[in-house]
């Protein structure tokens, strides 16, 4: 029997945090196409049995985490920090980065109508947003993008899986794209 599924389970536990799928491929000297279905199978096993752990898969990484519904019990054993919540300002900024990436700080501030430096700093410190270098726009401004951590946050594999909010409101999300300075 192919025991790669169980080996991966051991890898995820021993490694902690998010494991690069590329590194798992290297362990088995296999391709993404071989490894990905095993990851999905492992994830589905955990979900079907409502195990204490869950497997969160993104495009680049896979991570073993405790299942959120068991948090109240974890709290009885440990004193984990109270869940920190992002401010409304930070959430709006994160929404703009997610749907307009790569996006400049000035574009974020144009949409929100308020300066957004501290929100961006918070999101960067939390590992949800990162800068991906200078954009080819006048002044070579810094472009901001969401990270792999953000995909885990949303429980999606790629940024294309973000829900299409433009479709809901009937307004094209890309409409104002050319206004970018």
């Amino acid at each position: 029997m192919d025991n790669r599924k169980h080996i991966i389970e051991a890898l995820l536990f021993a490694h902690g945090e998010a494991v690069k799928i590329k590194n798992i491929e290297a362990v088995f000297d296999a391709y993404y196409e071989d490894i990905y279905p095993i990851l999905c199978e492992l994830r589905d096993d955990y979900d079907e049995q409502k195990r204490g752990m869950r497997i969160i898969i993104t495009h680049d990484t896979v991570k073993m985490v405790s299942r959120e519904e068991y948090y109240p019990y974890i709290k009885l054993l440990l004193s984990p920090p109270e869940p920190t919540t992002l401010s409304q300002a930070a959430l709006e900024t994160l929404a703009i980065v997610a749907y307009r990436q790569p996006v400049t700080r000035s574009e974020i501030e144009r949409i929100r109508g308020v300066q957004s430096t501290s929100s961006l700093d918070t999101l960067i410190a939390r590992g949800l947003v990162d800068s991906n270098g200078r954009l080819d726009l006048p002044g070579r401004p810094m472009g901001f993008v969401t990270t792999d951590e953000f995909l885990q946050f949303m429980q999606i594999e790629t940024i294309e899986e973000l829900p299409d909010f433009g479709a809901f409101s009937g307004v094209d999300m890309q409409e104002n794209e050319e206004e970018k300075e």
């Binding site: 536990f13 902690g16 945090e17 998010a18 869950r54 969160i56 991570k63 073993m64 985490v65 405790s66 299942r67 959120e68 519904e69 948090y71 974890i74 984990p80 869940p83 920190t84 919540t85 992002l86 409304q88 959430l91 709006e92 994160l94 929404a95 703009i96 997610a98 749907y99 949409i111 929100r112 885990q152 946050f153 949303m154 429980q155 829900p163 909010f165 433009g166 809901f168 409101s169 307004v171 999300m173």
Partner: peptide, 23 residues
Amino acid sequence: QFKAIASHLAKAEGDYSLRFSRE
């Protein structure tokens, strides 16, 4: 629109902050 998305993200954050992984 972004305000609506922000409240969607707040919901996602609710679950996200309750999951732990080994360091």
